[in-house]
Simulated assay, not measured.
Amino acid sequence: MSLQMPDQTKPAFQLTSSFIPQVVNGAARNILYGFLAADSDAGSQKGVKADTYGQLRLLQLPTDTQVPGPGQAQNKFNSDPEVSRELNLLRQGASDVLNGNLLTLPVGGGLLYVQPVYLKSTGETSYPTLQRVLVAFGDKVGFAPTLDGALKILFGGDSGASAGDSANNGQTTTPPGTTTPPATADAQAQLKAALDQANKAIQDGQAALAKGDFAGYGAQQSLLSAAIQKALDAESRLGATPAPSATASPSASPSASPSPSPSPSK
């Protein structure tokens, strides 16, 4: 991925790896001790290798500060109540939720974890589509339809960064013949109504299935999918409100941010 280490003036394509303590007697401490980046940009001039190609840069993290490793970051995502609620909502209906690669990025004297979340229909010709982006920094978690939105939630407003995906708000286009809700509509009320509709569709679908009414069950699944989409659209509008607050994870790590020092070597 394209990454800028602390001693670099611009981003470059690099391969990265995280280091955690060795497993001893079957016990492992999922604490980050180091972050290694290998410069993999061979250069743009034909036949000439870039001087920095193959250079290794190691960030050695302070031993007196417990910096959560990738495993702890994943557990933080999974245990966050808001994230769990949203993922459970996405899992309803005939869809699978797929977690993308968990990325570790050195940012602002600490480490930022980023993970995309995809939604894939169970149909044979379906393909995963990006629905949410998870981010974590220190003891806080952000979760939004876009990386820009997730960073704003994480840092309580303007993150000072632009991921270039703010226009991808996860909403679907309005079908012909329908009207778009006014901008002043109460998105929170719409979200609650959509969740109520989803719960009712689940209950009615189970009742139809118990009676052997497969046609009725299929109809309720369609209503469930529509309710889920309404809930996602309402949640997206809620995520667009200014200065949202970040949620603290139950498995929070110490709030002190590490101050890694780069050690370039060839």
Rank of each mutant, 00 (worst) to 15 (best):
13 F>K: 14
14 Q>N: 14
15 L>W: 06
16 T>F: 04
16 T>I: 13
17 S>H: 11
17 S>A: 12
17 S>F: 07
18 S>L: 02
18 S>P: 03
18 S>H: 03
18 S>I: 00
19 F>Q: 15
19 F>G: 13
20 I>T: 15
20 I>C: 12
21 P>M: 07
23 V>C: 12
24 V>D: 10
24 V>G: 04
25 N>E: 14
26 G>Y: 07
26 G>C: 06
26 G>A: 07
26 G>E: 07
27 A>N: 11
29 R>Y: 06
30 N>S: 13
30 N>P: 03
31 I>M: 11
31 I>C: 10
33 Y>M: 15
34 G>Y: 03
35 F>W: 13
35 F>A: 06
35 F>S: 04
35 F>G: 02
36 L>T: 09
37 A>S: 15
38 A>H: 08
38 A>D: 05
38 A>V: 14
39 D>P: 02
39 D>Q: 08
39 D>R: 05
39 D>T: 00
40 S>C: 11
41 D>R: 11
41 D>T: 14
41 D>Y: 10
43 G>F: 01
43 G>I: 04
45 Q>V: 14
46 K>G: 08
46 K>M: 10
47 G>K: 03
48 V>M: 10
48 V>K: 13
49 K>A: 12
49 K>Y: 08
50 A>C: 03
50 A>Q: 01
50 A>D: 08
51 D>I: 09
52 T>A: 11
52 T>M: 10
52 T>F: 09
52 T>E: 13
53 Y>Q: 08
53 Y>E: 11
54 G>T: 05
54 G>N: 06
54 G>S: 07
57 R>F: 04
58 L>V: 15
58 L>A: 10
59 L>I: 00
60 Q>T: 14
60 Q>C: 09
61 L>F: 02
61 L>C: 00
61 L>W: 01
62 P>I: 01
63 T>R: 13
64 D>F: 04
65 T>S: 09
65 T>P: 00
66 Q>R: 14
66 Q>T: 12
67 V>Y: 01
67 V>C: 00
67 V>N: 00
68 P>C: 03
69 G>K: 03
70 P>T: 01
71 G>S: 07
71 G>D: 09
72 Q>L: 09
72 Q>E: 10
72 Q>S: 05
72 Q>A: 05
73 A>Q: 05
73 A>E: 05
77 F>Y: 02
79 S>K: 13
79 S>C: 08
79 S>M: 12
79 S>Y: 09
85 R>H: 10
86 E>L: 11
87 L>Y: 01
87 L>D: 04
88 N>Y: 03
89 L>C: 02
89 L>W: 03
90 L>P: 03
90 L>E: 06
91 R>Q: 15
91 R>P: 05
92 Q>T: 14
93 G>Q: 01
94 A>P: 01
94 A>N: 15
94 A>F: 06
95 S>I: 07
95 S>M: 11
96 D>P: 08
96 D>F: 06
98 L>Y: 08
98 L>S: 08
